[in-house]
Amino acid sequence: MSTIVLLLITGLGLGALYFLVASGLSLIYGLMGVLNFAHGSFLTLGAFAGWELARRLGGESWVTLIASLLLGMVVGAIVAAATEFLLIRRLYNRHIEQVLVTVGLALATVALFDGIWGTDPIYVTAPPWLSQTTEILGARVPNDRFLLIAAAVLVLLAIVAFLRFTRFGLVIRAGVENRSMVTALGIDVRKAFTVVFAIGGAAAGLGGVLASHYFGYVSPQLGGSLLIFAFIVTVIGGLGSLAGAAIASVAVAVLQQFANYFLGGTGDLMVVLLLAVVLLVRPTGILGKKA
């Protein structure tokens, strides 16, 4: 029983991380049709920014942790918005080229991070509470899982509230539904593109700092390894669906944890298998609308 609880909560924590990456990917794809390969770099940069701040202020205090989380978000948002503004916008409606530009950006930035921070993992320090455990139903659960879950839930609520109650949110929802109609009504949908990229980048940057505490280190490869799972999550959840991304994140991460424990470390393979099954049964994903 205690093992199952531990696996479940750890899975939820990992799922929270996947969701932070996948939510941005899914929103961006839904609105613009761009598959953003550079999303992992936003995450890595956020993680490094958080680490640099923690190194200067001393990583053991809660103030530092919150400041580094905020800094990660801001850095992610700025870099993502700049990417959209400088690179993606020039290739309006040419989806393959847009994907290619983000591929180039991902390759170049990972190499740049290698050059600046080195290829070895850098270990991070966190407030002591995070590395302790709490007992729930007999399972000793590391506390950082709770931080991850809380952050992901907050992000989910914030994005949902933003989409539902603001004017920009309305434009974005309408744009996902039918972009040409929004444009025809005289609304400059391109502003919404930048906003969506900024939101996705902020979530990824936040995810980066959290990932550095979950794994215990930062490295230039951090974003890339999470990105592949985030892609899988996005496809399983249905491209463009935020709720789908949330459900699929949890499903994929929990499946991964259970398979790793009970089926001898086959978590990654089971995830790919799940993807294959979902595509065979329902090619549009759980909540995707059309092919």
């Binding site: 020039r90 530009v101 180039g104 390759l107 170049a108 990972v110």
Partner: peptide, 18 residues
């Protein structure tokens, strides 16, 4: 930047696409 071949190639790639 110059000591990372992939950085140069990646940048070159972006410029070619653009």
């Amino acid at each position: 930047p110059l000591s990372e071949p992939l950085f140069i190639l990646g940048t070159l790639f972006i410029l070619v696409v653009l």
